[in-house]
């Protein structure tokens, strides 16, 4: 469980997150909002790339903000990026093993854990294949494999299906749905594809201009008048 309390992030005169207070309990939770709402900034705070002006984040009882950014992977934070970041110079296996070897996990289990993660996301390619030779969809899956390898506690997925065709988005949705069950990790999904969010997330929080405007069961949140107004500028749909 993650409890975020009064989280505020400022970049100069811009307030990206404005007193955000929310909790993500378990399973796969959605985090949605219009462009510039502060979703990626929130992920960057959880990853340690951005230092908040105020607020606290307690994850599974630990003060997440007190952990140095590169140590958070060792703690159990894993993430994907809006712009896919699979490492081209490395093979699929090396891409996934990279996180395993820097997370303080046993070397003895590395090979099996990495192959498990590659298999779990449904990658059918040769683990030795260079990432540079993969399709966009497979590269996204490599990123997700990196996020689930080992023992993640918190998996942050930032638009993992962006730009993918419907069939690959559907497959990605199936993988995302299984992450909490298979790894035990709390998963937070940021996406603009509401059908993906609806299919994967039992609960969803909504940000607009850095403020939390709604949170709760996904179906209920997506019908919320404030949410519709935030996305469409009007409540009349």
């Amino acid at each position: 469980m993650i409890e975020v309390n009064d989280l505020t992030v400022r970049f100069g005169g811009v307030t990206s997150l404005d007193g955000m207070t929310v909790s993500f309990d378990a399973g796969t939770c959605g985090l949605i909002g219009p462009n510039g709402a502060g979703k990626t900034t929130f992920f960057n705070v959880l990853s340690g790339f951005v230092r908040p002006a105020s607020g606290t984040v307690r994850a599974f009882g630990d003060n997440l903000l007190s952990i140095v950014h590169f140590r958070r992977a060792r703690w159990g934070v894993r993430r994907t990026f809006q712009t896919e970041q699979a490492i081209e110079q490395l093979s699929v296996f090396q891409n996934v093993a990279l996180i395993h070897e820097h997370s303080g996990l046993s070397r003895a289990s590395r090979r099996a854990d990495v192959l498990d993660a590659i298999s779990f996301v449904g990658l059918r390619c040769d683990p030795q294949a260079s990432v540079a030779t993969l399709s966009a969809g497979d590269r996204r899956l490599v990123e997700v494999a990196r996020a689930v390898v080992g023992k993640p506690k918190l998996v942050l997925l930032d638009e993992p299906a962006a730009g993918l065709p419907d069939s690959e988005t559907e497959h990605m949705g199936e993988v995302i749905r299984q992450i909490p069950e298979q790894t035990g990790a709390l998963t937070i999904l940021v996406d603009h594809d509401m059908s993906l969010v609806s299919a994967c997330c039992s609960t969803t929080a909504v940000l607009d201009f850095g403020k939390l405007i709604a949170s709760g069961p996904t179906a209920q949140v997506l019908r919320d008048e404030h949410v519709i107004r935030a996305y469409l500028g009007t409540a009349e749909v």
Partner: peptide, 12 residues
């Protein structure tokens, strides 16, 4: 390739 991605992978 990407310093943020490297940090997220636990690389110092």
């Amino acid at each position: 390739q990407s310093e943020p991605a490297a940090l997220a992978a636990g690389i110092n």
